Computed example of a mutant assay.
Amino acid sequence: MNIEEFREYCISKKGITEEFPFDAETLVFKVMGKMFALVPLERLPSQVNLKCDPERAIALREEYEGRILPGYHMSKVHWNTLFIENLPHPLMKDLIDHSYDLVVSKFTKKLKAEFDALE
């Protein structure tokens, strides 16, 4: 998966916005205003930060050593940095979905109702 494929998959999800809240090189994807993916566009090789269940994060880092690392400039418990061009396409989609679903699962009742009302 390349950065453009990553972006297309992210923006296809419900309730998504993309913005540059930190600087002009760091693209952030949010669901209902909550960050679930961060992409440093100037970093090579291409990489992204995705939220992850802590136990799964450890298992992924062990299984994909050198390709999935603790989140760069993020909570090392809840975020992973992934070198996306070195990982299987289905795994990348699964991890994007996982990050998105983790964030959605933590919505307040009010935010969940707004999210559910979206087409």
Rank of each mutant, 00 (worst) to 15 (best):
I16H: 06
R7E: 07
W79I: 04
D97I: 05
E85T: 15
T26C: 09
L69M: 10
A117S: 15
L82K: 00
L60A: 13
I84N: 01
L111K: 09
M1N: 03
R67N: 13
L27A: 13
F22Q: 01
Q47S: 13
E19P: 08
A117R: 12
K30W: 10
S75E: 03
K93R: 15
E62R: 08
K51M: 06
L50G: 04
P40D: 03
L82P: 04
F115V: 01
A24Q: 11
K76L: 11
K76C: 12
R43L: 15
L111Q: 09
T81D: 09
E65H: 14
P90M: 03
K112V: 00
K76G: 12
E55P: 05
H78D: 07
L118V: 02
L38Y: 09
P21C: 03
L118S: 07
Y64I: 00
V48L: 09
E62F: 10
M74W: 09
I96R: 00
V31A: 02
K110V: 13
L111R: 05
H98I: 07
L69C: 01
E42R: 11
K106P: 15
P54F: 10
I84M: 05
T108F: 10
P90V: 02
I58Q: 15
T108E: 11
A37Q: 06
F6S: 00
N2I: 06
P54D: 03
K110H: 14
V28S: 08
S46N: 14
A59T: 10
K106I: 04
K93N: 13
L87C: 11
K93L: 13
F36A: 04
P90I: 03
G66S: 11
L102Q: 12
Y100R: 04
I16M: 04
N49R: 05
L38F: 14
H89L: 07
R7F: 09
G66W: 10
D101G: 11
L95S: 01
H98D: 14
N49Q: 10
M35R: 01
E55F: 05
P21L: 02
E25R: 09
F22G: 10
A117G: 13
L69Q: 04
V77P: 04
R67V: 06
S75P: 13
L102G: 14
H98L: 11
A59C: 01
F36G: 04
E18L: 06
E65R: 14
A59R: 07
L102K: 01
A113C: 01
S105L: 00
E42D: 14
L60P: 13
E119W: 02
E42A: 15
K106G: 15
M92E: 00
E119I: 07
R56N: 11
L50M: 05
F36C: 08
L44M: 12
P88C: 07
I3S: 12
V39E: 02
L111S: 12
D23I: 03
A24P: 05
A37E: 03
D23P: 15
K76P: 13
G71P: 07
K112C: 00
L102W: 03
K13M: 12
E25Y: 08
K51A: 07
L91Y: 11
L91C: 11
R7P: 10
K93D: 08
D23G: 15
I68V: 12
F107E: 01
R7C: 06
L95G: 02
K76D: 07
E85C: 11
L69R: 04
Q47Y: 03
A57Y: 07
H78Y: 15
E25Q: 12
K106R: 15
R7G: 07
E55M: 09
H73L: 02
C10N: 06
